[in-house]
Design a protein around this nucleic acid. Structure first.
Length: 259
DNA sequence: TCTTTATGGTGAG
DNA sequence: TCACCCTAAAGAT
């Protein structure tokens, strides 16, 4: 489930449900037992999202969570079921209970470690402090196709496989084109498209980028392109399945027809 | 009751 | 580029 929109939505929800109150923290699975013991009963001050990373502040070392590919949070209002055997972290404040399972990271970070982590991240299109120019400057120096560079969190933080496919389609950009060949105007349209799609995803709680609540190309390999009817392609790029329309994104399409 | 799949990232070769 | 880590749900047997 997790691209930037999921993580930002979680930060908003957890901030609303848990912050400002003492939180009962535990690790039913046991793999975060030491950290949970330290945080248990502390008042959560705030929750921040940066790209695909979550930071929970308590006045202690910050709690850093990264969902990875399979991590999921589940929230219960009122009575919560018993946690599953894989529940790494449980947090409860008043009537809200949150379970975390399968994260790539659930750890305490001291300020230096947090700084080092943030220094590795490019601008996040969902954040007000994001500077698209910084992302463009990095992108211009990259070798390799734009479809691969978009997934690199050092260039842009928060974009994953679904949004790379949808945004490149919406902008009519061939994913195989060299990243360095993308001009500033074109990049600005791409940034704006990504930002809008991600923002919509935060609101919706899911990735619905095409009119009618569906998707343009993501996971639609073999089906007809919604715009031109050509068969949507699926191919591997940067170790993930890339979906695109070989006609609409043929390498000489102009501009951002849909975005 | 298996096997497969997933919107991610790291570290080894 | 590959193997591998994490968990749960869906699909196949």
């Amino acid at each position: 489930m997790p691209e930037g929109h999921t993580v930002h939505r979680l930060a908003l929800d957890h901030g609303r449900d848990l912050a400002g109150r003492p939180v009962a923290v535990s690790s039913p699975q046991g793999r975060f037992a030491d950290g949970a013991r330290l945080l248990d009963g502390c008042t959560l001050l705030d929750v921040e999202a940066y790209g695909k990373h979550l930071f929970y502040r308590w006045g202690h070392p910050v709690l850093h969570v990264h969902l990875g590919l399979v991590g999921t949070f589940r929230t219960f209002h009122g009575d919560a079921p018993a946690p599953t055997s894989g529940t790494r972290l449980a947090m409860r404040a008043e009537e809200v209970t949150v379970y975390l399972a399968g994260p790539a990271a659930c750890e305490l970070l001291d300020p230096a470690a947090e700084d080092a982590l943030r220094a590795r991240l490019g601008p996040d299109p969902l954040r007000a402090d994001a500077d698209p120019g910084a992302a463009f400057a990095v992108l211009q120096r990259r070798r390799g196709p734009i479809g691969g560079v978009l997934l690199d969190q050092r260039v842009l933080a928060g974009v994953g496989n679904a949004y790379r496919a949808e945004a490149l389609f919406a902008c009519g950009i061939d994913p195989h084109r060299a990243a360095a060949s993308v001009g500033r105007d074109e990049f600005d349209r791409l940034w704006h498209t990504l930002s809008g799609m991600l923002r919509q995803g935060v609101t919706d709680g899911r990735i619905a980028t095409a009119p009618g609540g569906g998707r343009f190309v993501y996971k639609r390999a073999g089906e007809p392109c919604v715009r031109c009817g050509a068969t949507v392609a699926g191919a591997s790029m940067a170790a993930r399945t890339l979906f695109f329309c070989p006609r609409c994104q043929c390498g000489n399409a102009q501009g951002c027809a849909l975005g």
